[in-house]
Design a protein around this nucleic acid. Sequence first.
DNA 1: CAGCCGTGTGAAGTTTTCGA
DNA 2: TCGAAAACTTCACACGGCTG
Length: 538
Amino acid sequence: MEHLGQQAEEKQAKALATINAKLADTCKKASMLKKRDDRAIGMLERTIQRTKQATLTKAKLFHLLEKGIYKEAVCDTVRYLFRVGVSGNYVNGIIHVLGKLFGMDVVGNVSCSSVARFILKGGIAAKIQVGYEISEADTFTLSGDGTSHCAINYNSCHISLKVDDHTTGEASHKTRFLGIMPSLDGSSAESIKDWEKMLGNISDLLSCSPFAQRHHKGTLHLAGMFAKLVGVNSDHCSKEKKDAQALKAQKEDTVHQVLGEKKFSDMDDDELLPHFIKAREKMVKAVGGEDAWGNLAETEQAERKAEMFHSIIMELGKESLELMSDDEKRILKLFIWTGCGCHKGLNTVRGGYAAMVQYYSEHGHIPRPILLANQDNVAVLEGVTSEDDVENEVQARALEMTGSGEIKCAQLAGAVLNNKLDKKGHHDLFRWWWKKVVNKAFTFPDTSNTRFGSYCEAAIELIVHLDRFKEFLSFIQAKKGTHRWSHMEQNLWDALHDTPTLCELLVLGLYAETVGKHYSLIPKVTGRHVMPSRRVQW
DNA sequence: CAGCCGTGTGAAGTTTTCGA
DNA sequence: TCGAAAACTTCACACGGCTG
């Protein structure tokens, strides 16, 4: 019995201990929960703060590289900076400074070498784009101009074609810059080679590009490109005209080639056989018969066979073209050469002025502008006013060399007031005087450098401000210690007091105001400049 | 993990600018 | 026009991240 009582006591004590332990645990948990509850608000605030901070820090960082490669937007920005004149060495600094300006920390750097690579990559991408646009376009025109620097010839090249805007899907005409290429010499033959080289390079790049493999069907051949050429835009110099003729011939050849290749692939062996027999007979006959043909070296035979093959293609091409409708033929034969609008404007002035000079010889009673002989010829031409007064060859030569009228007067004014050489003429003195007296900033039209439209501009200024120019010449005379004009200044003074010369100035000025300026605006519709500062020789 | 590709570095060479 | 200095370009090489 006693044993049973002891067991019950032990059980009771154990249960009590368990309850006490549970109670302690519950109290501990309750305390913990209370504390956690007390801290909860602070914790939430801190977590929000921490997350906010992390997000802000992340948002403030701009990584130039992604997976070790510069982001495309970075490459574009670098190319833009370089294009607007930032040296490759300063691009990195500018990006970091701008990053700070916008509250961002830029991560990574762009070295000068990387800048060069982005530009190279951009150039290749641009060529691939142009290649794709050529492949998609039905036709295109080329334009260009050349110059030389340090005895090396350079040609600037553009292409105009209809392209689809990939964002809007709308088609519009665009002009793409193809680059400036150095040329071996200034000859027309080299120019054609350069065009072939440039278009060939575009064709190769497009054909080899992953872009073409992904999106483009087939490859773009040089011959196919030339077949789409429908015109050339250039200035009026004879070399450019010759280039256009050569490109036209090239286009005709390539049209025959492209059509011939197509026809060749469409024909079966039986149809082709007569063409081959005929061409082979012609080839063998050309070398002197079968015996002579057999004596030729294998390499020469191969060369002649290649020529024969080409002639068959061209023959088939010509046949194909003749079988086409007039509409189809028109576009395949179309080739337009267009000259520079400003040259045409210039030529109308030249033609008009020549007609004006001619008028004097046909109407002897009309007083002519005074002769404005240079210092060397003035003594020789003493008493000579026209061909009728010429007494010997020396005078005839001097008269031939001596100018008169509006053009000579404008040339003199340009030489005195805005000479092409900085050391000659009055330049700043004239500008300073004009600003002080007329109260207007003015530089005399650049007739010392012969440029488009400058003679007409000069005529307008000389007529409108005639008294001011006379006043300036008087000022120059008074300013000099000797109180004497130079020979050129004296000539200008005389011209500005000669009624026939002033009459010519008036005619040229009125022509420019009523016709020339309005005509020059037409090329401006599609171009950027009304009067490009390109030299022309009178 | 080897090979490829893109990148940075620094030297060497070239071109441009500036002042006499 | 010349030479020095500055600016710019090109090149080889090493490094590191990515990919298969």
